[in-house]
Lab assay of single mutants.
Amino acid sequence: MAAAAAAGAGPEMVRGQVFDVGPRYTNLSYIGEGAYGMVCSAYDNVNKVRVAIKKISPFEHQTYCQRTLREIKILLRFRHENIIGINDIIRAPTIEQMKDVYIVQDLMETDLYKLLKTQHLSNDHICYFLYQILRGLKYIHSANVLHRDLKPSNLLLNTTCDLKICDFGLARVADPDHDHTGFLTEYVATRWYRAPEIMLNSKGYTKSIDIWSVGCILAEMLSNRPIFPGKHYLDQLNHILGILGSPSQEDLNCIINLKARNYLLSLPHKNKVPWNRLFPNADSKALDLLDKMLTFNPHKRIEVEQALAHPYLEQYYDPSDEPIAEAPFKFDMELDDLPKEKLKELIFEETARFQPGYRS
């Protein structure tokens, strides 16, 4: 834990890192770190609560700039109880001085990944967590956004079992017609939660990839272990087919990539493993919904509104309290091709509203 900075004593240090967030945020305490930044909790002297502050230093890398800009653009436009918001952003007053960006968010005690390492969940908890994931996802999908990296560590939890989806750095506007060349190379989302079509096709992607990830998360809540822990690309596919069985001819016809289709045709026939054999203690309604989410063919996979209306979630289902976005989200430009200098300018502009004396 960093010592509390005395008023006016300059930035606090946390594990050798400068955290320049005073005077409003003090009493910093280390939480963890990701690929390009550290997260601390801090005391907000204005709202009198502890908050989470993520320090991001992305400006050396085009990919990190892209992810940072995506996350900020999306989260500043989203407003939903099951999606983490941005409360404040701290950065230098000029673009030349801006080396880091500090993002202030609600402090959540833990995440689903940490929880599943230590606790076996009751059916009631599984049901409530799944409902909140789908409630947040309904809003995301209504904005025409794909999260693309749903996994237990991106689901934040607090002691009252509130759940918030975080990390929109890989999110995209849904565009089933656009052929994202190089899709697989830039697709760094965790393999275990990846839909089979991501490994088999490169053309376009749809909201059904997020539903697949939610199915993987439900299976993990039922058993405290990942359902498809593939060691590499082909191993991942083999794990999936080992449980779902061989795809039907109709399902194979959806695979545009001939090499991928021929690979699947070359494999020995596998039978589907019954879900109640894998999860003998699970609620039968939970397994019915799991089956509809972990469907090989993305066109037959359940959609988020149908999933919310499934009998497993009937005690929570309330369409009048499951809000959607006001308007579909649009990125003005494809960020993939922009140089990091341009992305830095866009991050600077996007964060201006939090600067003292800002006038829109």
Rank of each mutant, 00 (worst) to 15 (best):
D100P: 13
I165G: 04
K259R: 12
V21F: 07
K207M: 15
S223P: 07
A3S: 13
C40D: 02
W212L: 14
P93Q: 14
A174F: 03
V51D: 15
N262K: 15
Y64N: 15
H125W: 03
I209L: 01
R359Y: 02
K164F: 09
P11Q: 11
D149G: 00
D124E: 14
L155Y: 05
S29Q: 00
F228S: 06
D332P: 05
K272L: 11
F331C: 08
T206W: 07
E334I: 00
Q17M: 04
K138A: 04
Y233S: 11
K151F: 06
A286P: 06
I217D: 04
P280R: 07
E96W: 03
G204Y: 08
A219P: 12
I90G: 02
M13I: 15
I198T: 01
V51H: 15
F354A: 03
L294A: 10
E33D: 14
E305F: 02
G136V: 14
K55Q: 11
K207V: 06
N45K: 15
R301Y: 02
I126Y: 01
D124H: 05
Q315D: 08
F329G: 01
L137E: 07
Y317V: 00
S122G: 12
P23T: 13
P274Q: 15
K138C: 07
D162M: 00
I86Y: 07
S320Y: 13
G182T: 12
W212I: 06
K99I: 08
V39T: 06
F183W: 01
R277K: 14
N87S: 03
V49N: 12
A219S: 14
L107R: 12
C65Y: 15
A92N: 08
S248G: 02
Q306L: 14
H125K: 06
D106S: 00
I227S: 13
N262M: 06
Y233D: 12
L146G: 04
I347Y: 15
P93E: 05
Y233L: 12
I74C: 04
S153G: 00
L156C: 07
H147R: 04
D210P: 04
D283K: 02
P268H: 15
H147Q: 15
H269W: 05
Q355D: 04
L157K: 03
R353M: 10
K114C: 08
E197D: 15
S248W: 12
H80P: 00
S284R: 08
D100A: 14
A6L: 06
H61A: 03
K259T: 12
P58I: 13
Y25M: 03
E33V: 13
E220N: 05
K231N: 14
D175S: 03
L335D: 09
G32R: 10
A282G: 02
L155A: 02
L265E: 09
Y25W: 00
I217E: 06
N281W: 02
F331Q: 02
Q132V: 10
Y312E: 06
A35K: 15
P298H: 14
N257T: 14
F228Y: 15
Q355L: 15
P229D: 01
I302K: 09
I95V: 00
L290F: 01
E326Q: 12
V273C: 03
E345Q: 10
Y102A: 12
S213I: 11
Y139G: 09
K207L: 12
L290R: 08
I90N: 14
A286F: 03
S41E: 05
L130A: 06
D210G: 00
N82W: 05
N297F: 13
Y233I: 11
F348M: 11
S29D: 04
V21Y: 07
A325T: 13
S122E: 11
L130V: 11
F78M: 06
L343I: 09
Y205A: 03
A4Q: 09
P23H: 14
F129Y: 14
V49G: 10
A7H: 06
F168Q: 11
R91M: 00
A52F: 07
A325V: 13
E322L: 08
K340P: 10
K207Q: 11
Y128E: 00
C161V: 01
H125A: 08
G34H: 00
Y25R: 08
R15E: 02
K138R: 07
F183H: 09
K231R: 02
S248F: 10
L134M: 13
R77Y: 03
P298Q: 02
G16W: 05
A260N: 10
T185F: 12
S360C: 11
T190Y: 05
L278G: 08
H141D: 00
D20L: 10
N27L: 07
Y36A: 14
P152W: 10
D149H: 06
G169E: 06
I240Y: 09
W275N: 05
